[in-house]
Amino acid sequence: MHRYANPGRVLRLSRTLVPWLGAATALLIAAGAYLALVASPADYQQGESVRIMYVHVPAAWMAMFCYAILAGASAVGLIWKHPVAELAAKATAPIGASFTFLALLTGSLWGKPMWGTWWVWDARLTSVLILFFLYLGYMALHSAFDDPARGAKAAAIMALVGFVNVPIIKFSVDWWYTLHQPASVFRIGGPTIDASMLLPLGVMAAGFTTYYFYVVLLRLRAEIVAGKIKALRLRQVYG
């Protein structure tokens, strides 16, 4: 981990990784979209609208995955004052917020034909909405200080406090048995979803994951370069 506290080393690593991640993302999403939209069967009950699942479920997984990374990077940044971890947390937050928004949006579009309503105050939906607000709060707090280092630290503490929500989201469908269906992939006793649907779902999820790493590395690179430019400007002004 401390190897990658050196921004220059991370910059070099990202230069080699980014093209591969970009290609993998394009390939996986294209294959996943084909499998999900064309090659997989329609649901016997839900018909064609089951295909919303192949975007909704990976987006919701990524929303929680991003928050876990955000909290983990924030903890590393606070404990070891790891400069790259702090930047990684900052770079992750908008991506996580977008995935959360996408999960809420596709869930709403799926809910209208299936449940007959755009929105219900179900435990899973509510806790994901809170997750979205936590992301917004993190980003607002990060940018609220004149000193960026202060913002990074305050936001890191906030990210750790907000982490209590992640297990609540995961187990909300088990604790409160409301409208949202319980876990059907990551559960004790194996997935209850048929292989013909599990495969496109898995490919899409892999595509979403490589997409996250692709974008986060690009953003991280931008952050590091922005920091360098700032340092150069300061040197120009103060000699």
């Binding site: 709060g137 607002a140 906030m158």
Partner: peptide, 14 residues
């Protein structure tokens, strides 16, 4: 922080 009051509600209310 700048605009502490509004920010506080965004952090605390959720």
């Amino acid at each position: 922080a700048r605009r502490g009051g509004v920010l506080l509600s965004l952090l605390v209310l959720p």
